[in-house]
Amino acid sequence: MTKTSRPTSTLSSQTLFRGLDVVDAVEAGYQTVQDIADHTGLPFSTTHRLASALVQARYLQFEPRRGYRLGARLLELGFAAYRDSDLTRSARAGMEELAEQTKDTIHLAQLDGDEIIYLDKIGGQRPISVNSRIGGRKPVCSTGVGKALILDENEDQWRHRYAYDEKRGNVHVPLDAWLAAMRKYAVGGYAFDLEEDAPSICCVSAPIRDASGQIVAAISVTGTTDYTDKAQLRTLIPVVRRVAESISEKIGGLAVDRKFVARR
């Protein structure tokens, strides 16, 4: 996971940002004081002091021979944020409708910097499951929801995102082919993931818009190639778009006719 960039801090807020860096490091899988210190660049003694305070406040927990893990307080805050989100509440009925109709995994996601983050998930009813979780992060350029979230960006922005993911080994489609697909998706108001993020996993996604017409989230149907091929994904495009548009209406947004959106 890429370390989150913090704003320039004053002395009074420096401890807060350092503590958040420690939490981010544990979330990324660093479990010992030395590993966390090496990842964050903090002194060993500072890292130990902050980690101990975070354990006391229940933001982290410590297990002998295993190290630090995220604590119960973060789980409580996560559920509170989920419960209070207008978007997740508004999207839930549509997600359940898609889950019932397709029997596949349904995701709701948002952009978070140069990655996407899953806001909600309904697991599929197939024997083979999709490995994802609420709060999990994925690349933008190789995922269906990631592409749907950037449909309104211009080609310079697309190239920048491609370069970012390519540098990290997260995109395996040649740039020209990827851009050609993005142009097609932008016109159609949907996006595919054709085993680009993970072998045997494919999905179709559509954007969700707010009252200003801006894309604020994306919803997807994700399955495996054992049960879904490209032809079946195409039949789901109008279904997923309709649900995305119904969610947009619930949060005050309007459907956008892609034929009249000029590419910049």
Rank of each mutant, 00 (worst) to 15 (best):
F44T: 11
E115Q: 15
S5F: 14
A218S: 11
P238F: 03
V26C: 06
W178I: 04
V221R: 02
E115P: 02
E63M: 05
Y59G: 02
R66S: 07
K259R: 15
I150W: 05
V55P: 03
H39K: 14
I106W: 00
G144P: 04
E166H: 13
G78K: 12
L54M: 06
I215M: 06
V22G: 01
R242L: 10
I201W: 03
A109W: 08
H160S: 13
L108V: 03
A255M: 06
D165L: 06
Y164H: 14
D152H: 09
Y59N: 03
L254H: 15
L151G: 07
L236H: 01
D84N: 12
T40R: 01
T15F: 05
F192I: 05
G144I: 08
E245Y: 04
R137G: 02
V173Q: 10
V261G: 00
V243F: 01
I116Q: 07
K138L: 12
N131L: 06
H48M: 10
S52Q: 05
D193Q: 03
F192Y: 15
L60R: 02
A81C: 11
R6T: 13
D226F: 09
N131I: 09
L11P: 04
E155S: 14
Y227A: 02
Q34A: 14
R83S: 12
S246F: 07
H39S: 13
I116L: 05
L77T: 09
T143A: 09
D35A: 15
S12H: 10
T225D: 01
G136Y: 02
P199D: 06
A163P: 05
S45K: 12
F79L: 08
N131W: 03
V261F: 01
R159A: 11
L151W: 03
I237F: 08
L74W: 05
D84V: 00
Y162L: 04
A218T: 03
S13M: 14
L119K: 06
S45W: 04
E27F: 13
E245F: 00
D114Y: 14
S212E: 10
Y68M: 06
A99R: 08
A57K: 11
T46D: 10
T222L: 06
L179I: 15
K121F: 00
Y185A: 04
V26W: 01
T225S: 12
D120S: 11
Y68G: 07
S212H: 06
T222E: 04
L194K: 10
R89W: 10
D104P: 04
C203V: 09
K138A: 13
G252N: 03
A91F: 12
V261R: 12
R58C: 01
C203E: 09
A211Y: 14
R263F: 04
R168T: 07
R234M: 11
Y162D: 04
D197S: 13
V240C: 11
V173E: 08
D197F: 08
S9E: 10
L233Q: 01
G169F: 00
G169H: 03
Y82L: 13
Q14H: 09
R242I: 01
A181S: 14
D86N: 14
S5V: 09
G189Y: 04
S5R: 15
V187Y: 15
Q157P: 03
